[in-house]
Amino acid sequence: MVGNLLLRGMIAGAVASILVFAFAHTFGEPLVDQAIAFEEAAATAAGEAAEPEIVSRATQAGIGLFTGVMAYGIAVGGLFALAFAFVHGRFSKLSARGTAAVIALAAFVAIILVPGIKYPANPPAVGNPDTIGVRTELFFLMIVVSVGALVAAVAFARNLAVRFGIWNGSIIAGIAYIVFIGAVQYLLPPINEVPENYSAAVLWSFRTTSLGMHVILWSVLAVVFGFLAEKRLETRSPVGRPAFR
């Protein structure tokens, strides 16, 4: 059963990746071109020699982008399916589609939204190459903390639900999660390496486009996988019995 769900998760990830690629190619790549143009102009003004183009921009924006997005989407889809197989039927009475939607929303908040608030995505020409290691470590630290805090908040909400009810317990746990994440983000060092003369419009558009790509990925993944998983579980479950345990 888990292997079958895993396959469906990878299929859902592939479907989502096609839409993400179309969005990124249409709205994201022109912003990357503008960022590269700024970077090249800054290098020329500083008297630096132009770096040789190892991979053409056409390849990067085409097959390169498609391959990267597809590999990422399929991997995420597989992990999503494993999370679904572990959660569904064990912690709630939600349907397969409902469980998929909740997992996708929680993953988007913990893995994408929260880390992105502290350390948002940056286009080319933004960031010091000498600090890339530190920036990467801080970003992944924020992801680990966010995911861990979300898991703790869910457990906290379940305990509170016994005394205060599901709704009130969820609100209290949600507030605790927000307060904790706010404190962590306040304590972690900020990173601001945007050049003073960099276009604010390009920076803002790039970050919102990057966020939009993830919104598409997780939304489509939840819808497609929820549909596929529900159909599969319905064919495996006798009438009146839980679909998956």
Rank of each mutant, 00 (worst) to 15 (best):
F84V: 04
S205F: 11
Y186V: 10
P120G: 06
I175Y: 07
L217H: 07
A149K: 05
F180D: 03
S210A: 01
Q185H: 12
F66M: 04
V151T: 11
A222Y: 02
A85Q: 12
A96L: 03
V144S: 01
L217F: 11
L228Y: 14
H214N: 11
Y177D: 15
V2H: 10
I175M: 07
A173F: 06
T99R: 07
E29F: 12
S237M: 15
T67C: 01
I216R: 09
S95G: 15
S205C: 06
T99K: 04
P52G: 01
A104N: 12
A24R: 13
A96H: 02
A101C: 09
G62M: 09
T67S: 05
E234A: 03
A173Y: 06
A49P: 06
V69A: 07
F206T: 09
W218I: 02
S205L: 12
Y119P: 00
T44W: 08
L150E: 14
S146N: 09
A173P: 06
I11H: 05
V162R: 15
N192H: 14
V55I: 15
N168R: 14
I111T: 12
W167D: 02
F180P: 03
G226S: 04
V2F: 10
V220Q: 07
N4V: 15
L211G: 03
E193V: 12
A41D: 10
G77N: 10
F227K: 13
W204P: 06
F84S: 00
G47I: 11
K231W: 13
A41E: 10
V109M: 12
A149M: 05
N128I: 07
L141H: 05
V114M: 07
F27D: 02
I181A: 01
I117S: 04
F225Y: 06
V147M: 00
A149R: 04
E39R: 09
G9D: 00
A37H: 10
L7E: 08
T44L: 08
R90K: 14
P123A: 03
I191H: 15
V2D: 10
S17H: 02
F86Q: 14
L233M: 14
L113S: 08
V144A: 03
V179T: 09
R207C: 00
V32F: 10
V220C: 07
L150R: 13
F38V: 05
G68D: 11
V162E: 15
A107K: 01
E40D: 04
V154Q: 10
V32Y: 07
L113W: 15
I112E: 10
R236I: 14
S170K: 07
V109W: 11
D33I: 01
W167K: 09
L19S: 04
E230V: 03
A42G: 01
G68N: 11
R245E: 09
P115D: 00
V126Q: 08
W204D: 14
M10D: 03
I171R: 15
I171W: 13
G133L: 15
T235R: 15
L221K: 01
